[in-house]
Design a protein around this nucleic acid. Sequence first.
RNA 1: GCCGCGGUAGUAUAGCCCGGCCCAGUAUGCGGGCCUGUCGAGCCCGUGACCCGGGUUCAAAUCCCGGCCGCGGCGCCA
Length: 576
Amino acid sequence: MKRTHWCGELRREHVGLEVVVNGWVHALRKVGRIVFLVVRDRSGLVQAVVTPKNPNYSLVSELSLESVVAIKGVVRLRPPNQVNPEMPTGEIEIDVKEVQVLNPAKPLPLPIFDKELMKTTSETFRLKYRYLDLRRFEMLRNLTVRAKFITALREFFNANGFIEVETPYLARSTPEGARDFLVPSRLYPGKFYSLTQSPQLFKQLLMIAGFERYYQVARCFRDEDPRADRQPEFTQFDVEMSFVTAEDVMNIVEEAMRYAFKKVFNVDLENPFPKIKYREAMDKYGIDKPDLRFELFLETVTEHVRGLIPLREGDVARALRFNFSEELTKNVEGLIKEIIPSDGKVKYVYVLRGSNDVVTNEVGLAGDLIKVFNLGIGEGLVVTSGEYIKASEAIGNLRNSLGKLLGLADKNTYKFAWVVDFPLFELDEEGRLTSMHHPFTSPKLEEIPKLDTNPLEVTAQAYDLILNGYEVGGGSIRINKRELQEKILAILGLSKDEMLDRYGFLLEALEYGAPPHGGIALGLDRLVAIALGYDNIREVIAFPKTKEMTDPMTGAPSKPPEEYLREIKWIKVLTD
RNA sequence: GCCGCGGUAGUAUAGCCCGGCCCAGUAUGCGGGCCUGUCGAGCCCGUGACCCGGGUUCAAAUCCCGGCCGCGGCGCCA
């Protein structure tokens, strides 16, 4: 019995046809002596009917849910009063002639087609039986949409003269940035590959190779703690172009987004996307990836609170005020406590003025703050104090989450924007200069002289693409001259020897006719997740890891057998 | 590494604050039965659980301590 039709495509026009469908037993309803069997495949559902006259009657009536079957039968119209308007195939049903049970199924551990129960089923459990979880139409849709989105981007970039090139995942470790996943080298005991954090250097080398326009759907690996929007391995849609300015890159990426969003979601995006300067973003929103779906601005209130809140030399105070409805008081308070770091670097006060009471973490201050800020009933105020960036980020982060909690952010709006004019460097915990983007980012050429005098004031030719409070892309114009690249690496504290050891291949390549070039990496998981309305990228990844970086299904990570460790010359394992 | 929340049948949830009325209730699933037009089928009967370890107490699902696991966040994420 060979499949002739998909379940979900059968319609009135197929009436009278003998068809064969394959699929899973989605539902089995025995009403009196009639058995209604709903068969499911990727395309949808169709009802089949068996009565006691049918030689397959007992076989069908004893089927278990989710068994795999092949059904041969004749499509017929349902009696007029039995049409199910909720079902695309609801006008017809299959009068069963022959049934093959290809594989009976045991009862499922996961109630996959009980929407109510699945809403609350723990994610660990879904991940343990991910192959069942993925049978749900919602997951099928998510991954289908993801595939369509990738296809749309490929179409767009192919049509614009880009070449898709694969680059290695096993590469040389470069200690900057995130922690690497290391892979021991069997042939060179004591040496390791690292899984690429991104194709950054390879794509630059492709530009030097003269490919001019490249893209790739690239897996990236970073050994840092996951979050709802971060996984240890994730997918970037990676793009690089030669002979372009930052504007050129941003323009083509905007076009790509407009094309893909229209094609896949039928959404018209703004044209052009707004651009915000980094400093303006920090000042107005306190964060470099503000959610622009709502207007709510930070204020600098250092002078208003001087004398009330203890300020160290150079500290600033930043404030966010907002209206909230009283039943959310607890949630707002919880959010503030959760988001603002309690590491002592930032101090914070909040005052939530209800109609009968005031909720605050500083009883002694609340009265004064209400007076100073003229805080009305139903208004909340959060003041952070400390070093400008820290105080701003703490409250900016809060702003993005508060927008969701207070319903300020419209779920059906996609608010893209570019954040530009990032500083080239920032200071790390130890007060050393580090690259804000990465060490291959070009400074604005006219600011090169400032590299020696005020490196922190040098602006990068870098740009982030943001969407609804998430960073969904980041890129820059790269350095294409050896001299400048060496200078940057030197400023970052690398000795000549270290430079040559780690980046010698790049530095040399820059001398053999490296064109000006730049590009971007788009966070594909985030883009698709946000477009579908999820905060959690695991919903658009077929087999994601948990927050603790495990896979409950396969049991990864696992302990390799001793012989294997011996073979790869890596038998010393330190635990803890 | 840190903070918060959580862990009760296959799944989900009630009970936990305020210990005894709980050999743990409910929904769904599963097993059996009834029903010839169901489609979240319906009705009847049955089945099955307190994360692990220690402590307090006459008595622990409930209180305390430790652990494990998960989710969210902070740090981290060039």
